[in-house]
Design a protein around this nucleic acid. Structure first.
Length: 204
DNA sequence: ATGAGGATTCCA
DNA sequence: GGAATCCTCATC
């Protein structure tokens, strides 16, 4: 397993990186506890020019500041007062690009994921959807700003091969407020993977 | 100080 | 289809 390095995260094309993250492995290692899963769904958020992005128009607030850091850190925030969403920050300092990880195929630590989520069966809902990804891997808003080059949270390449034709681009989910930008094909899913979130009509 | 709204999930 | 739930942000 090769941990992705700063050269991977610091590139300029956030949409391309979002696509490349499909098939990579997201790992959390807190204390002695390791959980991981293969990334099967991502969404790119193109910063200043993207109405769907929290950093649209270079909006800098306490919350969004971490997105302006150089690529390779975690951006974790709370939505609906309930769910914590894990993002990967990319590009250079002051260019606020981020990629939301929306679904995983569980690999390691499934029993721990069941404990964390309070679920009783390891079915496809365990890491389906961005709220569930964070919950299963134990990621919370405390981890916003954590480096992905460290050992607590990181992404690795285990040489798993994803065929180009098995990666499908679609519009992003839950961003109707973004006007025309809501139509951009910035969401990537691994074809036919049961963990992928959204309705069937959103996965073609 | 206040109020509106959200990159969701779960159940009916 | 609708509630849960609370932080963030813009505005007053």
């Amino acid at each position: 397993m090769k941990k992705l390095d700063s050269a991977f995260y610091n590139r300029a094309d956030v949409v391309k990186i979002a696509k490349e993250l499909i098939g990579k492995v997201l790992i959390t290692h807190f204390g002695e506890v390791i959980t991981s899963g293969r990334i099967v769904e991502t969404e790119a958020y193109a910063g200043a020019i993207d109405r769907a992005s929290h950093a649209y128009n270079n909006r800098r607030t306490n919350r969004t500041e971490v997105i302006f850091q150089a690529g390779g850190v975690a951006y974790v925030y709370l939505v609906y007062g309930i769910h914590q969403l894990f993002n990967v920050v990319t590009n250079q300092k002051d260019t606020p690009h981020a990629i939301l990880v929306r679904a995983l195929d569980p690999i390691h630590g499934i029993n721990t994921m069941l404990e964390r989520t309070g679920k009783h069966r390891a079915d496809y809902t365990l890491t389906k959807g961005p709220g569930n990804v964070s919950k299963a891997l134990g990621i919370t808003t405390r981890h916003t700003g954590v480096s992905l080059l460290g050992d607590e949270i990181y992404i690795a390449d285990d040489d798993f091969v994803v065929a180009k034709k098995d990666i499908i681009a679609t519009p992003r989910i839950g961003i109707d407020y973004a006007g025309e930008d809501a139509k951009l094909p910035y969401r990537f899913i691994l074809k036919d993977n049961p963990n992928v979130s959204g309705k069937k009509s959103q996965n073609a």
